[in-house]
């Protein structure tokens, strides 16, 4: 017995124990989105091929890959926004909390209330800051002014923009800077109290300072939400995400924990991409 014990070096024991810890941690985080063999066509164009991906609760999942590889398409499939393009056809399964999102009984409006989205370009409505935030709750039937006031403040605080706008809530949202507009859009998304937030290159139109603010915000938000973020910025992916999926030509080349993807990727193409050798 003792002999067997010593046969395994101390370091190896430690490493295995660490892996065990990681495994259990992994098990704790529930899967919110379970994608199986997803294929998607825009007319004749095969944009997503056999995608298999799990998105986990309370984690940031980054999607990286060269332009045109299908990142936005995949993201928009998760809340079925992609269906706004009439030529789109999909096969395969996506389960949201165990229920197929393509099921006939599922209403897209309900799905989109639970799965919020922040777009690449800040896209506030041409309304006041207040009205931008209150829009979501209002369309879901909340009319009480006091409740709305509360939601507006809570959401703006949640997106760390409250202090900058609290004195101008009834001014036009277009008067805000690009970075503020993007955080306003995040706040607008928080106002419908989703479970998952999809972000498509949320910082690509922002300066470094606003970018850091949004990143900080994302780190804060993942305590309560599952976040999926598309980004072209490798540092950003490694800074804020727990898992990273590398897309190439509509396929998932590699999907793993972010530190694995960035430190010891198994696929040569992943390594080339994150080191800036192509894409």
């Amino acid at each position: 017995m003792a002999g067997a014990m010593t046969a395994i070096p101390q370091a190896e024991v430690k490493k295995r124990a660490n892996i065990e810890v990681l495994r259990t941690l992994e098990q704790e985080k529930e899967v919110v989105f379970d994608t199986q063999n997803l294929n998607l066509w825009y007319g004749e164009k095969h944009a997503l091929r056999d995608i298999n991906l799990d998105i986990h609760e309370e984690e940031v999942t980054a999607i990286i890959g060269p332009s045109g590889c299908g990142k936005s398409t995949y993201l928009k499939t998760l809340n079925r926004m992609v269906e706004l393009v009439p030529s789109v056809r999909t096969t395969g399964v996506i389960q949201y909390k165990g229920k197929s999102i393509f099921d006939k009984s599922l209403r897209v409006e309900e799905l989109r209330t639970q799965v919020g989205m922040v777009f690449q370009k800040p896209n506030p409505f041409p309304k006041s800051i207040y009205e931008n935030i209150a829009y979501g709750p209002k369309i879901h039937g909340i009319r009480n002014k006091m409740i709305l006031d509360e939601i507006v403040e809570k959401s703006l605080r949640g997106a760390y923009i409250w202090d900058e706008v609290k004195d101008r809530l009834h001014d036009n949202a277009y008067g805000l800077s690009g970075g503020q507009q993007q955080r306003l859009c995040i706040a607008r998304c928080l106002a419908i109290e989703p479970d998952v937030i999809l972000m498509d290159e949320p910082t690509s139109a922002l300066d470094p300072k606003s970018t850091l603010k949004v990143e900080e915000l994302i780190r804060e938000l993942k305590k309560d939400y599952a976040i999926v973020i598309v980004t072209h910025n490798m540092q950003q992916a490694s800074r804020i995400s727990d898992r990273t999926a590398f897309f190439l030509d509509g396929e998932v080349v590699e999907y793993d924990r972010t530190d694995v993807i960035f430190n010891e990727p198994t696929d040569q193409r992943t390594e080339d991409y994150i080191n800036g050798r192509f894409g």
Binding site: N79, L84, E109, N123, Y135, G136, R188
Partner: peptide
Amino acid sequence: HLGEASYGLGAT
């Protein structure tokens, strides 16, 4: 993108 923002919030 205005319409998309609205659909994205679950509007009909």
